[in-house]
Design a protein around this nucleic acid. Sequence first.
DNA 1: CGCGACTATATGTCAGACATAATAACGTTC
DNA 2: GAACGTTATTATGTCTGACATATAGTCGCG
Lengths: 252, 252
Amino acid sequence: MMIRTSTAVGGAARIAEKLGAAILGGTYKPHDLVPGEIELCRRFGASRTVVREAFKLLAAKGLIASRKRAGTYVRAREEWHMLDADVLAWRLRDGEAEPKLVFDLMHARAVIEPAAAAMAARARTPATLAAIERAFADMERAAHSAVLFAEPDVRFHKAILTATDNDVMTAFGALIEAALGIFVDVATRHPGAPAPSVPLHGAVLEAIRRRDAEGAHRAMMALLDRTARNVERNVASGKRRKARQTSASARV
Amino acid sequence: MMIRTSTAVGGAARIAEKLGAAILGGTYKPHDLVPGEIELCRRFGASRTVVREAFKLLAAKGLIASRKRAGTYVRAREEWHMLDADVLAWRLRDGEAEPKLVFDLMHARAVIEPAAAAMAARARTPATLAAIERAFADMERAAHSAVLFAEPDVRFHKAILTATDNDVMTAFGALIEAALGIFVDVATRHPGAPAPSVPLHGAVLEAIRRRDAEGAHRAMMALLDRTARNVERNVASGKRRKARQTSASARV
DNA sequence: CGCGACTATATGTCAGACATAATAACGTTC
DNA sequence: GAACGTTATTATGTCTGACATATAGTCGCG
């Protein structure tokens, strides 16, 4: 199992994690300099090699860049790779979450996923359809528990993206995954099993099965509508509650 | 000592560039090991430090991972961050381009951009509208040359994404930019100025200006339709011609 | 034939040195 | 005193050689 509270795990990755979260959290703002390599060596108890490798991890995501003599600075916000799963996770995790981001994600999903469902209805093969069906079956089985529901739910949505047979659409899976991770987080601290959403998922599956592109589009839209209402209802209460739990939400 | 055979520029970035292109180009396939650090030091005439930093750049994009003793290997294709601008560029650039990817990109644009135009029509502010107008004006001025047209064209589409006031939609800018880079490449080696597409862009702008969401959606759809037909017409000839120019396309 | 101990190997980390470029400080000239 | 060229400083960039660590592969034992 391994609990690894904070120690031991990867050198560069650990530092990048902390620094990335700090940047996304606003500790270091665009055009600010991050602490110098030597200073970070001291703080993290690591060698310059490792700190520099951490820098490269963040540089690859568009977060920082370095100039000789001047130091390493945070790049302009527009340069950040916002669709990168890690960047998204850092944004969503930081204590003072941004409710607007949650809505932005929902709106983006409302654009992408219905279209994806329609494309899947047209392009599905026996194999890709089977993957969707498997995910759906697992969802039905886990419908009583929000926690157990999460995994097949993500799998369901990703399976649809894969069934589009479009590499770019498939790539949105990472986005959906990050988004659903948060929504689940919201849902779990709210009463009520996810059972009601099962038939809505079922409708999407059914439309894809009979190659009904328009129907799949509509069904996915309806599903996301329900999710959006759920989220909207819970964002306020989540906001109230975050004050006392800072960011202690354990990743299950 | 170091003889620096090639052109001196960038250390880690240069190596990451080559390796990334090689992975996306299929030289190293998923689950394959890439050459060891020492071997790459030899090949690139660099120190292990630099090679390792290059590895981190690629690791951050999901392309590779390392295990002790076993070496550094290419991760499964599903793990690659396909929406990353560099990854996309590497895919598009490699000599044996994938025509399917070009179509996938077009289809994805057809999903995202009309929706973005509609959102922009609703959410635009004087400032964001002005940015779109400026880009359009520059397009009109450059309508006679495909090369000059490219920059304001990209700016136009990105300005619309920004005007949505949705961080996730805005992030698609990198995607559009990479896609347009290729389409321009195709267009330039084909006769005819981009002038005909100007009024189509103008219609989008006009709809956004009068806050007509549905109209903006339709206009953007029409614009992309034309682009799609253009691309479709030119992919075949591009394919034929790539044999003799391998990958000598100079970046303008 | 299965299993534990050992070894070789590639990555992971470290410390110290020098190279490089851009800024800041200085001093000279008009 | 202001403009300009020179030097010093500083943080990143690169190189080197060494040691740490985990594990795939090998060997030998039961």
